[in-house]
Amino acid sequence: MPRNLSLASALKQAGIIDQAQALKLQQNDTPWWLQVILGIAAWIASILILIAFIGPIIALAENDSVCFVVGALLLGAACWLAMQRQDFLQQMSTAVALAGQGLLVYAIYSAFNSDDELARYGCALISAVLLFSPLTQLHQRVSLSIGLVCLISLLNSSLWLALGSNLLALGCLVLWCSRPKWATLAMASRIKSVLEVVTLATLWLALHGQGIFYVDDYYWPADHLYMASTLYSALGAILLLSTVFWLSRFATVPSRLLLLSVTAALCVLLYPASGLLISAAFMLACFYACSIRWYALSLLSVLVALSQFYYSMHLSLFYKSGLLALSGGVLLVGLALLQRYQKRLL
């Protein structure tokens, strides 16, 4: 039996919800794979329509005001489509809304003497404003991603990027760990959209921070890179330790000490692998928040961070091999102690 059916029945039997609400909950949400397939079809249809209608208008007009008006009209049409029930039209609304947003950003860029910085601020602002519109959750995520990329691209210091990335990570970890508290708020679905986008961005930034020496050595001064790398590592270690400290708050004192000791040992040994530490913190937080999908993504991030660690050329392979071997040993010791603790419980 599908999960939502069995769960809704259980809630109804317990008297928590009535028959009408149970029927509403038992309506199958569209599975993710059908949403992806519909999304592809909707995007193809939307592109065809936009090329047929909008392309000629823009090409003939060559006027910023026309772009503004057409962009606003597209956003209005997208809002109308988003209020329809069919999944396909919901997907189309995302494509049309993004086309409208793109036109508005282009109009800002063109109207203000091709100022790309202003255009990026404009893009971020439009994304933030549209978060409060009736557009779909898919659109919120895509639009927020684009807005966030625009904002991050405006940072011109590796140190600020390191600090910003870790602050975002802190915010995400707090939200994942406090999911029961905000899940019932009126803005919960918007908070969830923001949380998912920022989590993805933070994981990407963590991997970027770990590989900062060979990714960005031509872009930022070398001494700033060392300081940025140190910030990533130090703050990543603090985030992982804090996450373990908070999650183990109900454990007994000896267990908690053991967990923190193992975590501290890993933080010291894997200090150069800041991406690994931050991804591990997210793994634990997402597990606590019962989000298996994001747990799996964090696990994937751990694997990518480990592969990327191979290419950290500022450390020798021999040194890295030693660090990994010792870390593996620490985990094995932790496993042995855990098995002993479990035998005592039984």
Partner: peptide, 16 residues
């Protein structure tokens, strides 16, 4: 802990 230790130790061997 099990798969993490296998992964880290295997990676250590590969790096070595």
């Amino acid at each position: 802990l099990l798969f993490g230790s296998v992964l880290l130790l295997s990676s250590a061997v590969i790096f070595f």
